[in-house]
Design a protein around this nucleic acid. Structure first.
Lengths: 204, 204
DNA sequence: TCCACTTTTAACCATTCGGTTGAAACCTCA
DNA sequence: TGAGGTTTCAACCGAATGGTTAAAAGTGGA
């Protein structure tokens, strides 16, 4: 018998691929190997399913980010870790699902984002902002707008994590040139994103 | 009588707010002040409506970007212009709608993106990549991965353009701190994004 | 005025979706 | 064996949705 976690995993994938509106309850129940009535009995309606899927995917990342605030004193190393949290995950699929859901939510103005999930996002943002602010206070970083630094890190990272299919389609319709640089490993991508950001905000 | 352009404008807003699946034909027709049958008579079904809306919003940006390739020899100035094209637009709403649609499409793996629109996106990417490559060849930029530079620019810019509602919600639930740095004008945001990227890729 | 084109009106259809229900089956543990 | 919780099954509901159409009404120019 599938556990709640199994169901949430399937639901997360569905929400990432199709969005909240596009995901189908029947489909999720069927793919999780559970009856629709069971899903309602165990978890509840679509809203509850979404909220729990979000907390499940956001929670561990936030916890890791906040642990880094006290465990990693070096601000550059800490920013690198935060970049990895965004681009990479327990596995790459996990990270790309996370990014897809977040991008959709941001595009929708967080209108369907449950309050609990929004609070978690806010804490991640706070972790990045605090790290940048520490770096500025230590004289390591330029007096950069920490919120824009957050945008740069999250934007580059999540966009890269999620847009592999788009890259593939673009590469297909523009043949002739070498496309190797478009397909990096998640680790390389996270490192290069962090490098670029750090070069951009480090004091000369 | 509303013109086709009026209808496309309403449709673009609807697609940006709700996504392709979420947008309702009846709603678009009603808000455009035109009958649904007229919409079908003049433009066609939902697919045609989406394709034309995309071309309308992408076309001018691509044209401007490709003009810059020959008109602006200075690679840094050119990159700044490309950043502005992403963050800012004819008006700010226009830019944020563009960004919202693009983010949704990227999150969906460009699965519903018409081929014509995808080709336009590819040309924008090519413009950024070529500019970065020129800068590298001139010895101005580090040998950066041009595709990642594209991610950084597009990611930061579009994320910022679109997430004003999210910032507002986050600011609301985390009171007490100053939030001024979270709300920049589009011009300031575009400039700071470009600054960060240029500092990140410029040779020391 | 007549004609071709455009727009509206209003209905229709087949499909889909989230959610519910009630009865039957199953399982576990005492 | 029996009771209580869990799961399945299949059908159903009501509301929307995308798409289409036939006929009437309106429009402007030759």
């Amino acid at each position: 018998m599938p556990t709640d976690d199994d169901i949430l995993d399937v639901a997360t994938r569905a929400f990432a691929e199709k969005g909240f509106d596009g995901a189908r309850i029947d489909d999720i129940a069927h793919r999780a190997g559970v009856n629709k009535a069971t899903l309602y009995y165990r978890i509840g309606g679509k809203d509850a399913l979404y909220a729990r899927a979000m907390e499940r995917i956001l929670g561990p990342k936030i916890a890791r980010a906040e642990r880094a605030l006290v465990e990693i004193p070096d601000v550059e190393a800490r920013l690198r870790l935060l970049a990895r949290l965004l681009v990479d995950g327990a596995d790459h699929e996990h990270a790309s699902r996370f990014a897809a859901i977040m991008l959709r939510e941001i595009a929708a103005g967080a209108s369907t984002l449950p309050d609990t999930a929004l609070a978690l996002m806010g804490r991640f943002l706070a972790a990045i902002e605090r790290t940048v602010a520490e770096g500025v206070a230590q004289g390591i970083f330029r007096p950069i707008n920490p919120f824009l630094a957050h945008m740069a890190l999250v934007g580059s990272g999540m966009l890269y994590a999620v847009n592999e299919p788009v890259r593939r389609r673009i590469a297909d319709i523009a043949p002739g040139q070498s496309k190797d640089h478009m397909f990096l490993s998640p680790e390389d991508a996270a490192r290069q994103v962090a490098d670029m950001l750090l070069n951009g905000i480090r004091k000369p």
